[in-house]
């Protein structure tokens, strides 16, 4: 009954470290060829999940399948998956080429030297590091080391490439570039990528599907759009994108309205037609973000909330100053009642 299209599957996987439950009875399926992310704050169990896929940890209960085969209890060196470590974990005593060929050299039978050399050249070309084979890893920049780590893993054509916060050590600009590069690479090689990150923007921008975790449990799995538009609870709505929370119809519920779905105008009458809510508000703060301007406003009834105004309206209506009395409102579709968990 396992879905044949899934390369990695967790069935009721639980991991305990002493009294601490790091992963609590999760089911998860990674589909062949997709780019999936596991998103969550530190300590949510995402890295432990990844390590159970790689084989560094074994589940306390439950089963792990790779390509439909039960690999529970199988050690890391016998699993057809490879990992890119957070700090790359390149071997300092080996050249770049020897790092990249490491996986091939562990095979039995060992490929010929010519085969290995050809594969290494190909892998280095793939990550745009032609001619770097003889260098030592510590002679390379962070971005280059990152790419060596990728080549070292991808050369083995793993069933799944596991990426443990691979971009965390890079600076912001480089991180953007590498995100794009990773996406292109994944498309080119057609290998399933599973990325673990705490950076929601990274997860949303790169992956086809995102799995949000909290305290060892999977809260929601879906496309970035689904998570953004249809979060299953307050936690997902808060973690994926920015939102305003207001008191819900009952204490167990909460009202969520995304800041970009709130309209603002100079006065209540200047607001467009068809809005469900219309309120007078005062501007408390304004942050210019380029294509958007972020306002914090306060209404007598609802308190403070955030509004994201696109550039277009700014041109139309001008920039509101702190202290200005203006009006805000939203359509019925913007309101989302979520469980307060």
């Amino acid at each position: 009954m396992s879905d044949t299209s899934s390369v990695i599957e967790f069935r009721k996987v639980t991991k305990r470290f002493g009294d601490v439950v790091a992963v609590a009875g999760n089911d998860l399926a990674v589909r062949a060829g997709e780019f999936m992310s596991i998103l969550g704050p530190s300590g949510c169990g995402k890295t432990t999940s990844l390590r159970m896929m790689a084989g560094f940890e074994q589940p306390s209960s439950g089963e792990v399948f790779i390509r439909g085969e039960n690999v529970t209890g199988v050690p890391a060196y016998r699993r057809p998956v490879n990992m890119v470590f957070q700090h790359y974990a390149l071997f300092p005593h080996l050249s770049v080429a020897d790092n990249v060929s490491y996986g091939l050299r562990q095979r039995n039978p060992k490929p010929s030297k010519a085969e290995i050399d050809r594969a290494v050249d190909g892998a280095l070309a793939m990550v745009r590091l032609e001619g770097y084979g003889k260098r030592r890893s510590y002679e390379l920049s962070g971005g280059q080391q990152q790419r060596v780590a990728l080549a070292r893993a991808l050369i083995n054509r793993p069933a799944v490439l596991l990426l443990d916060e691979p971009l965390a050590a890079l600076d912001r600009k480089l991180r953007r570039d590498m995100q794009i590069e990773l996406q292109n690479l994944q498309r080119d090689v057609g290998i399933t990528f599973l990325l673990v990150t705490h950076d929601q923007e990274e997860a949303l921008s790169m992956s086809g599907r995102v799995c949000v975790m909290r305290e060892g449990r999977i809260v929601q799995t879906g496309s970035p759009r689904e998570l953004y538009d249809q979060p299953v609870n307050r936690y997902v709505a808060d973690f994926v994108g920015k939102t305003n929370f207001f008191a819900g119809p009952s204490p167990a519920e909460v009202l969520s309205i995304r800041p970009e779905q709130i309209e603002i105008a100079t006065s209540l009458s200047a607001l467009p037609e068809g809005l469900m809510a219309r309120l007078p508000v005062r501007v408390l703060n304004r942050i210019f973000l380029g294509e958007h301007t972020e306002y914090v406003v306060v209404s007598e009834k609802l308190g403070e909330f955030m509004v994201m105004a696109p550039r277009k309206s700014e041109r139309d209506a001008g920039v509101y100053d702190i202290g200005d009395m203006i009006a805000a409102g939203w359509r019925a579709e913007a309101e989302r009642i979520l469980p307060n968990t």
Partner: peptide
């Protein structure tokens, strides 16, 4: 992590 990387790349504990 270097030891894990080695295992991950298919090296048996002895080879690691």
């Amino acid at each position: 992590r270097l030891l894990e990387a080695s295992a991950d790349l298919g090296a048996t504990p002895i080879r690691t």
